[in-house]
């Protein structure tokens, strides 16, 4: 590979990191909120797929993609609320319910999504941030969707709120020790229900990004495990919203390796490079499990680490 091709690949990876990372970011922030409250929702993959379908359908029918984003969030909210409600019943395992919600969400999405595979829905516009560079490849890489900035703003807001607001403290306390939360007169079930619902809303928006911006169409193979990788990503980010953004960018870059190499004509091993995000996730999980830093930052009530 010569130097020009390397630059092309790096620019494509930069653009890819920005594009591919946004759904990761939203799902990871949603999961971060849920896990901070002491519950794990493995079903966000279902929210992502259903969100993608609902966003595409609503955007196609109404002509307004932002209405689609809102509808996707609402569909995610409903799935999240279902998870939150079921998990507050006694003897119910939140991880198993997550798997069930994943299968329920994708089932519903595939069922109602059939008519929307063919038509083209209005998509979200992007903000051209790279025109001043005079480099067409760089300009294209810096076409950034507004949702990317919404995600970053959200991460900053969440990080601030966890540290500085009463609500943030209540969520963290519920996640670290249900007994202390109860002693303070806080309803543990209610806090977790709200956190799971809000987390589901964010994951739904992540799905809207998939179908309305990048890759930008609805089909049944749209999300392949991004929702679950985001859960691993939260563990890697050690339950910190800001670190979630960095982790999402890293995952986005890994996901962009395959298409970036393809753009300079390297097609052999395409499937291998497509598997890069999964392999990266696995290695990150192996490296971050049992690390002292993770053990310090994990919410005490989380079943995944017990």
């Amino acid at each position: 590979m010569n130097e020009g091709a390397l630059v092309t690949v790096l620019i494509a990876m930069l653009g890819g990191a920005i594009r591919v990372s946004t759904p990761f970011m939203f799902v990871a922030l949603g999961e971060c909120l849920t896990e901070k409250s002491g519950r794990i929702n493995l079903g966000l993959e279902g929210n992502l797929v259903l969100g993608a379908m609902v966003a595409y359908g609503v955007s196609y029918l109404s002509g307004n993609p932002w209405l689609g984003v809102l509808a996707a969030g609402s569909s995610g909210l409903i799935l999240g609320a279902m998870h939150g409600y079921i998990c507050k019943l006694p003897k119910v395992n939140d991880i198993a319910v997550g798997i069930a919600m994943m299968s329920f969400g994708t089932g519903i999405a595939f069922f109602f999504g059939k008519p929307y595979i063919q038509p083209t829905a209005p998509r979200l516009d992007s903000i051209p941030l790279g025109d001043w560079t005079g480099n067409s490849a760089l300009a294209q890489a810096l076409q950034v969707n507004p949702l990317f900035f919404v995600g970053i703003a959200l991460a900053l807001a969440m990080s601030w709120a966890f540290a500085n607001t009463k609500w943030g403290l209540i969520v963290r306390m519920t996640g670290d020790s249900a007994a202390s939360a109860r002693a303070m007169g806080v309803s543990v079930d209610l806090v977790r229900f709200l956190a799971t619902s809000a987390g589901g809303f964010l994951a739904g928006i992540g799905g809207a990004f998939l179908s309305l911006y990048y890759p930008g169409s609805w089909n049944e193979g749209l999300s392949s495990g991004q929702g679950l990788m985001a859960v691993a990503l939260v563990i890697f980010a050690r339950w910190d919203p800001i670190r979630c953004i960095w982790a999402a960018l890293l995952f986005g870059a890994a996901g962009a390796i395959g298409p970036a190499l393809q753009s300079v004509g390297i097609t052999s091993g395409y499937y291998f490079f497509n598997a890069a995000p999964y392999i990266l996730t696995l290695f990150i999980m192996i490296a971050s499990a049992r690390s002292k830093a993770a053990a310090r930052d994990v919410p005490g009530e989380l079943s995944i680490t017990k």
Binding site: I86, V92, T106, F110, F111, K114
Partner: peptide, 25 residues
């Protein structure tokens, strides 16, 4: 009906089944 009908049925069974876990005892 689309082939995803079976998926919807399976999803519903799965969710209801796990909810029913709380009935034990």
């Amino acid at each position: 009906m689309p082939d995803a009908t079976v998926l919807v049925l399976q999803g519903i069974i799965f969710v209801v089944l796990l909810t029913s876990e709380s009935l034990y005892g």
